[in-house]
């Protein structure tokens, strides 16, 4: 399966050098993006997400972090530069759960398997398996309106897990839930990641969340956004909440905060 390459029209004459190799899931090469209304959101972004790597992207709100995910997933084409990404195995989780209100939790979990044309029995098995992994067994016949915000987000995660993505793109997925639920969902995500090791790009505006979840935190500037710096978080997975109180961890958190304050946020 070849990787999908999105490039601007002027870049199309250039050969696609440095396309995805086996260990790279997403590659941004000198990517800039301007919206049709003339707003420049991204400027000269170079970013690589390796196989099995958890990258958190943090930056001031409205800086173009979400645009980065939309470029990676192919929902948007860059104005200039190249984006390489294996489009087949993407799981995209939006800020809102975007469940279909007229389908049960199980029906929602089956959706992508249905799009992929899997047989009924097979997609039911996959969906039930995904629901079990996010702890929603017993709720499969409920409709989204009866679920809490955190459970809706779990259902949304399960929906994306069904096709076993090799790349997870999460766009501030826990921004709309309360702090306690947010931490619990974070731990659940770490559990899922530790087991499946999908490459992950996680957009957030919380320093604590970014540092706790990711191997690597990418700090972006305000609009037009470029990458200000990266901080490695070399702590093994699965991580436990106690990590938050270790001095090594707080040191790294401070570094991310310092970088972020350079962004003028």
């Amino acid at each position: 399966m070849g990787d999908a390459v999105s490039k601007s029209s002027e870049a199309q004459t250039k050969p696609a050098v440095g396309a995805l190799d086996d260990s790279t899931r997403v590659l941004f090469k000198d990517v800039s993006h301007t919206f049709p209304d003339g707003t420049e959101v991204l400027r000269n972004v170079d970013l690589k997400v390796e196989k099995g790597e958890f990258v958190a992207v943090i930056g001031p709100s409205g800086c173009g972090k979400s645009t980065l995910l939309r470029l990676a997933s192919g929902l948007l084409q860059p104005s200039s530069g190249e984006v390489h990404c294996e489009r087949k195995g993407i799981g995209f989780v939006f800020q809102e759960p975007t469940l279909l209100p007229f389908r049960s939790v199980l029906g929602n979990a089956e959706l992508f398997a249905e799009f992929a044309g899997l047989a009924k029995a097979e997609r039911r098995n996959l969906a039930m398996d995904a629901l079990e992994r996010v702890g929603l067994i017993g709720f499969e016949d409920k409709y989204p309106k009866t679920l809490s915000g955190g459970m809706k987000m779990r259902a949304s995660l399960a929906r994306s897990l069904v096709l076993r993505p090799s790349l997870f793109l999460l766009d501030e997925p826990f921004a709309a839930v309360d702090e306690i639920t947010r931490q619990r969902l974070g731990d659940d995500l770490i559990g899922l990641f530790s087991r499946d090791r999908f490459a992950t790009m996680f957009i957030t505006h919380s320093v604590a969340e970014a540092c706790y979840l990711a191997d690597r935190v990418v700090v972006m500037s305000k609009r037009p956004a470029c990458i200000l710096g990266e901080v490695e978080l070399p702590f093994p997975y699965p991580r436990s909440p106690e990590l938050r109180f270790e001095s090594e961890f707080t040191e790294r958190t401070r570094e991310v905060s310092a970088r972020l304050s350079e962004s003028g946020a």
Partner: peptide, 14 residues
Amino acid sequence: YSSTYDELFSLHQV
């Protein structure tokens, strides 16, 4: 319906 659903469906080339 919100435009996020449009994105959700475009992602899967529906």
